[in-house]
Design a protein around this nucleic acid. Structure first.
Lengths: 226, 226
DNA sequence: AACGACCTACCGACCGGTCGGTCGGGCGGA
DNA sequence: TCCGCCCGACCGACCGGTCGGTAGGTCGTT
């Protein structure tokens, strides 16, 4: 189903497959998976439908590879670096900023194909959904840490986690690279909005609380398993 | 294109059309517009494809009517009641809560067909996008009011408005009516998160600021045009 | 250097099947 | 009798996918 790896001598083929994925992701994003024909993708790459099928077993397999590639990016550039951050507030901020950066950079077309997952057969769908759940749990666990440290506003963890996700995943639908706003500006604004909404308002002055926080012992485990 | 109104003697026909819209909206939401055939919709209603075409000119027209119906709900149950609220913070809170309620109630399937708008011909699409823009502007203008009153956190208005929208429009994708959370609980949590993230942190105590606010003269126009 | 075996990359033609949409007509109540 | 409602049969277009075939390069053997 996925692009199968051979032992060693196939760098060329995989490179072409990646190229095809990039082009297909863009068209799928613009027109939708169902509304895009395999010939459309082939034409955009300067070859025929039959030629495309030299690289992919099916249209569904192509979509699966694209989405897997997107999830790889999130894992490598968000999940892994962010897990190393001890303070849950810092971790959450980095998570938002890093994820936002992925979705706003050029080839980030990959990121918001989430709806098209229903076009996949159940087995593939389950596999991708499982990877998404891992990511969701990272967010939810981070919020739980904040909560047990008394630093979270009174709010349901699930609602909070999905709302943060909503802000991030909505971003690629409206952000224009050639627009007025820069990636960094948008990423920071969203992080500020989310964290401002999540963190419990200080009872005393901001500075005082901030000082106190650093002195207090952590009540929660420092790093989560996995 | 849309369900055309006749002078008087067609209450029956419009009722049936509404029934069809409701059923179709649900299937479109579950399987996607392109992946749903007209026969699928007809079967769900206990009639044939040809029978369905007695009520609608085309599959696209059906989608257009569904989306128009959804926008009507937002207009009647969110925009209109909310415009009457003077205080921008209260207005924003009501907007979020009311919109969230629409998207989480049973037949709210209508609300998150937003992606499928690309299946429509440009003319219809423009028409719906214009209505959406009006709604977006309501949010943005409300935030601008907060800003000019010095009550908004330092954040770009466009980013803030889209982020609020993202939280709301993401809701129907994860909310389950038979789940643990109630509509009201979720709606209130989201409103608290959004407003907590948007409103500038108080410099003095919460109560003091709240008292002050009510005394201060408004610097912005009380009600926007349109 | 010449040759044939073999490979990747790709194409034109074609297939079974499904789609949105049409048409002529049946049928039941006013 | 007429009209709103609905059906079975059908159409052309297009879809995802397959098939046989080929141009061009690499490699081992002679």
């Amino acid at each position: 189903m996925a692009a199968q790896r051979r032992s060693a001598p196939v760098p060329r083929l995989d490179a072409r497959r990646a190229e095809i994925c990039r082009a297909a992701a863009q068209i799928f994003r613009d027109r939708g998976f169902d509304a895009t024909s395999v010939s459309d993708i082939a034409r955009a790459l300067g070859l025929t439908k039959a030629g495309l099928y030299h690289y992919f077993d099916s249209k569904e397999a192509l979509l699966f590879d694209i989405m897997s590639f997107g999830l790889d990016r999130v894992r490598d550039e968000v999940v892994v670096p962010v897990r190393a951050i001890r303070d849950p507030e810092d971790r959450l901020r980095q998570l938002i900023v890093r994820h936002a950066r992925i979705t706003t950079r050029g080839q980030g077309a990959v990121a918001h194909l989430g709806d098209e997952i229903r076009a996949l057969p159940p087995a593939s769908r389950k596999q991708l959904e499982e990877r998404m759940r891992v990511y969701f749990d990272l967010i939810r666990d981070t919020l739980a840490e904040l909560k047990s440290a008394g630093r979270l506003r009174h709010v349901d963890l699930t609602v909070a986690a999905f709302s943060v996700l909503g802000m991030i995943l909505w971003l690629p639908r409206w952000f224009r690279q050639d627009g007025r706003l820069t990636q960094e500006q948008v990423a920071n604004d969203i992080a500020n909005l989310a964290i401002g909404g999540l963190i419990a308002p200080a009872r005393s002055s901001q500075a005082h609380r901030k000082g106190l926080r650093k002195m207090q012992p952590r009540r929660h485990e420092d790093t989560k398993k996995n």
